[in-house]
Write a protein that binds this DNA or RNA. Sequence first.
DNA 1: GCGTCTGGATTGACGTGTCAATTCCTTGCC
DNA 2: GGCAAGGAATTGACACGTCAATCCAGACGC
Lengths: 165, 165
Amino acid sequence: MSDERHRSTPTRAELRVWRDYIETAEALRSRLAARLQSESGLSTGDYQVLLALSEAAGRTLRSSALAALIGWERSRLSHHLGRMERRGLLRRESCADEPHGVDVILTESGADAFRAGSVPHLRAVKELFIDALDDSALAGVAVATAALRERLDLPSGARPPLPEA
Amino acid sequence: MSDERHRSTPTRAELRVWRDYIETAEALRSRLAARLQSESGLSTGDYQVLLALSEAAGRTLRSSALAALIGWERSRLSHHLGRMERRGLLRRESCADEPHGVDVILTESGADAFRAGSVPHLRAVKELFIDALDDSALAGVAVATAALRERLDLPSGARPPLPEA
DNA sequence: GCGTCTGGATTGACGTGTCAATTCCTTGCC
DNA sequence: GGCAAGGAATTGACACGTCAATCCAGACGC
């Protein structure tokens, strides 16, 4: 008997699982991002913003509401909205009813871009993630993910509508 | 009976698993990066480079060998080495025996930084990932990851030594 | 009215990543 | 010798993220 189970750093086998996990997730992220980019000229950040706006009433959200919805820091969102506004995907105007509020409004061209990107993107998610896993593997991912989310204090299950990326 | 299993885009439940998976992996990455940064002033990129150099014979690697070892594109590595060199973590010198080869050499200060960062980082991996999962969940992750790696044509299992990040 | 506090949003600096040139040396062909 | 081909590494331009200011308009106390 060794003290293996009380050590404070991972064993080699554990490290192997960790490294494979994080490398794989990163590879998935980057493959999907590259595909989305080449197929529709959108980054995954663009996609998240466009999705949220598409589903919002009047295709409009307060900047702060948008940040909360997609879980971004404010400054990140500001920078990103600036870039998207330059490309004509959305526009910003200060909203009357709230003190420092800014309304972010989806443009027609932004809505088009999202429509064009959405289906191919979801197809890619299915091909590279869903179809790679059988039912039991998918269930295993769900279980492990839930445990990790708890450890990280991330909200679990039942969040807003979807579809999603 | 519906045609659910032949549709080309994911179902809502599948999308939920996907979104949780990718969000969780991203959260893990960013927590660990923040911890590593604040505890030892290193980014995860720095860490990968320092780890590879630490284990190399003579604490030295050809730039191209280093790129292959950690799986980075050359230009990414060049930019990163430039920044690390400015900080004194390593130095570069053109190596005599190979035509355009550049030797990347770990400095004492770089070795110190890696030693200082390594244990806390591994501890963090254990806390946030390993300890969040029981044996069966960990096994589930390993199985699902292997399936995903196959789909993505990533090398599986049995790669170089380790420890690792 | 005046100062201060607060919270929403933006900005600037800088590290990081990717893509498309570009540089530089070596090798091989004539 | 002269020159195209090719591989190793770098560079520049630009998108993306984070952190630490900053800006600015109301709210509150006096």
